[in-house]
Design a protein around this nucleic acid. Structure first.
Lengths: 223, 223
DNA sequence: TGCAGATTTCAAGATCCTTTCACATTTATC
DNA sequence: GATAAATGTGAAAGGATCTTGAAATCTGCA
């Protein structure tokens, strides 16, 4: 069970997120100010923090700085749509991602998982995944196709895992870059294509990764 | 609940729109000048702005420019019939759509929804739709008719979705082009016919898409 | 520093989608 | 019915998007 701390001055927002995350199997703590949060952090180990930027008194950026003095816990910023703030500043201060209100439960959970994976905080309770002829040993980070071991690079592995996690869903290049590469990636969209290419090659026949013209890619599981 | 800001110097028009939108479940804010609007925007997050072009003092175009300096919130321009104005200029300044006075409540709401969809501000929480024998899985972008999977191209898919969203409503070619292709589409009206043709073919028997002679098309749902 | 592997960029070519066009067909009106 | 206007249809031109191989750049490590 992973611990998540929500820091937001609005009680409604805190409860909403607690409800979302509770349903997804996270243990939630919440604080209505940085001050309250520090107390919680002294006595509990958090796996991730969701931090509202716009708060009376200490704002999210200040709270983030303070937390970073003591801890590297992943932090996801919460910003209202159109709110003026600096993405770059958020990253410099040590934020790991941000999410814009209003958001859907699914989006929130997806982002949390993505951040946890990137920062290595997600210890999947699953040891292995089997999709069609593809077998993944998560602990050993080993992938085999039809019993034959294939060597994937880091990005290929992450891409495959993300596709499998969202199997049958169409994912845009933008989404893939955001979730796998992170929000601070500024390179070309075409990068995704290249990794898709090598992944397809290494997975061999089977046509797992499909192109959805004009939209993106998806992984289809055979019946 | 989505926030919409109405900027118009005429009090009657503001109240009319507020009434329309209030009934449709939007939260309305209103300003009688750009100046007043900036104040509201500093303290509130808007999901969309309806902006009258012809206003004393700062006109709509100027206000739009100012807003665009800080925000990408979608903007719909309001113009009186016959009023001289430049559609191209509106788009260059960052407008997302325009509507000509007088308009009907339904038209206004339809345009707002279309813009929100295009700009990604509208998060439909429905993952799948079932209409007659047509089943749509939105996440997978998969469409099946009578259990049989059919492959739709991007435009066909968008067209089908829009028709379903406005089922039983007659939609003109102009409307379809504006809502699906976007306000800046400059091609032929007959393009719609071709896509209707291929859609009909792919959906097979069932006569879902009906021609309304001299007006446009509509999708009828069987009971 | 220099190397090897990983990642990213680039651009030509392939592929698929969109739009247009010309002509056939249907519908409304007189 | 005849006529004009609107719609249906097939094919082909035109565009846009994807694939791919190779080159350039980056990164971690000895």
């Amino acid at each position: 069970m992973l611990n998540i701390l929500i820091i937001d001055d609005e009680a409604d927002m805190r409860h909403l997120i607690e409800m979302y995350l509770g349903n997804s199997g996270f243990a939630c703590f919440s604080a209505e100010s940085g001050f309250e949060a520090y107390g919680i952090l002294e006595n509990n180990v958090m796996d991730l923090i969701i931090l509202d930027i716009m708060m009376p008194g200490e704002d999210g950026f200040e709270v983030c700085s303070r937390i970073r003095e003591k801890s590297n816990v992943p932090i996801i910023f919460l910003s209202a749509k159109g709110e003026e703030w600096d993405k770059v500043k958020a990253l410099q201060l040590g934020g790991d991602d941000y999410i814009v209100k209003p958001f859907s439960p699914g989006e929130l959970v997806a982002r949390i998982n993505a951040v946890l994976r990137r920062t290595g905080g997600l210890k999947s309770d699953m040891d292995s995944i089997q999709i069609g002829k593809i077998a993944i040993d998560m602990k050993a980070r080993k992938v085999s196709v039809a019993g034959k071991h294939v060597t994937l690079t880091l990005k290929e592995y992450e891409l495959l895992l993300f596709l499998i996690e969202h199997k049958s869903q169409v994912l845009s290049r933008e989404q893939l870059l955001e979730y796998i590469w992170g929000i601070d990636y500024t390179g070309s969209l075409r990068t995704v294509d290249t990794h898709i290419k090598t992944l397809r090659m290494k997975l061999g026949v089977g046509d797992y990764i499909q192109t959805v013209w004009g939209v993106g890619y998806k992984l289809e599981v055979p019946d």
